[in-house]
Design a binder for these strands. Structure first.
Lengths: 189, 189
DNA sequence: GTCTATAATTCGATAGAC
DNA sequence: GTCTATCGAATTATAGAC
């Protein structure tokens, strides 16, 4: 039986690198986030980054681990599922820059795009299957919801399209919530 | 009075470079689209690219000129505006890879993001103002429509999220059309 | 564990011959 | 107009001293 390993001192260094990498990937995308800049942010020698993570690919994989933490909606009235989910997604985006890092990297880096697809399949689609009766419909409806939430995040946080970035949070959630509600409950068009 | 200049032979070369650049920017984003690769695609010496366009920034600007060609909807019934616009956007995306180039580049390159904002302001928002009575509402509603269409294109063409990429074109247009229709005509939530 | 030095590429951009 | 040669900078990654 294995006991929990005592935290080594190096774990703090490793975590500092990981956090700095996440910030850089979120701000600059994959290519422009250089190991040198990440090391400088973490106040660590660039060679240490290579020692801890092997190469840039593996560093990104470690920095882009992400859990959407889909909420428990068992107590949410059916009619309020849309706004509940819209608020949850927006909250996750604002509280964890990993999603920004993933999106910025996924657009030019195939491995990051694959990670996005994994997150969709294992977290969004799985969640949708628990609240939608028809499992075949669940995947398509989860995908439609993803198009709207990713598009909103893209316009608000990445492109910073003025009307989207300036829209009050509650108003945006109300609009997006209505769309998600429709994707969840409307009949197939 | 100026007469139309006779096409010089060099114009063909210039256009070949521009088209190759558009393809590379669309496929790889700004950073990974190298001048060397673009020149190789166009079967032209890399030095010629610099001679014709000065630098990479200006080459991108030339390759990313784009017209959404918003349709004339004066004869479209109000209830079908949503699907009409959804079909138009999707068609433009499929017929002109400039939009893909813009999106891929905009996520990591500030100048490309600025171009996206310009296109929204000068083409999408302007169009919305012609079909929506309240001008203050028009900008916000145009922005919401953009979040949905950009998100759909992102998932279908860039991330290639399987359920979105595999969804039949007509079914996708029907779903998106309903959302756009709602953003155009629904009361503020 | 930490850091210096540097290898090996690759890129944008320039100079200049023809 | 076209192309060769190359500069100078930046990058990932490695080797090895301490």
């Amino acid at each position: 039986m294995m006991s929990t390993p005592r935290p080594r001192r190096s774990d703090a260094t490793r975590e500092a690198i990981r956090l700095a990498a996440r910030e850089r990937f979120a701000a600059n995308g994959y290519e422009r986030a250089t190991i040198r800049a990440i090391a400088a942010d973490a106040d660590i020698d660039p060679a240490m980054v290579m020692r801890y993570f092997g190469n840039k690919e593996k560093l990104f994989a470690a920095a882009a681990e992400f859990d959407l933490r889909m909420p428990d909606v068992s107590a949410v009235p059916t009619g309020r599922l849309g706004v509940t989910l819209a608020a949850h997604f927006l909250g996750r985006w604002e509280s964890d820059e990993t999603l920004n890092a993933l999106l910025r990297a996924a657009v030019t880096h195939p491995a990051a795009a694959e990670r996005m697809r994994e997150i969709f399949a294992s977290q969004v689609a799985t969640f949708a299957a628990t609240i939608l009766p028809d499992p075949t419909q669940a995947t398509a409806r989860a995908a439609l919801i993803s198009t709207q939430m990713l598009g909103a995040a893209l316009c608000r946080f990445v492109l910073e399209l003025p009307p989207v970035a300036a829209m009050p949070r509650e108003e945006l959630i109300a609009w997006l919530g209505g769309t998600i509600q429709r994707y969840l409950t409307a009949a197939r068009p």
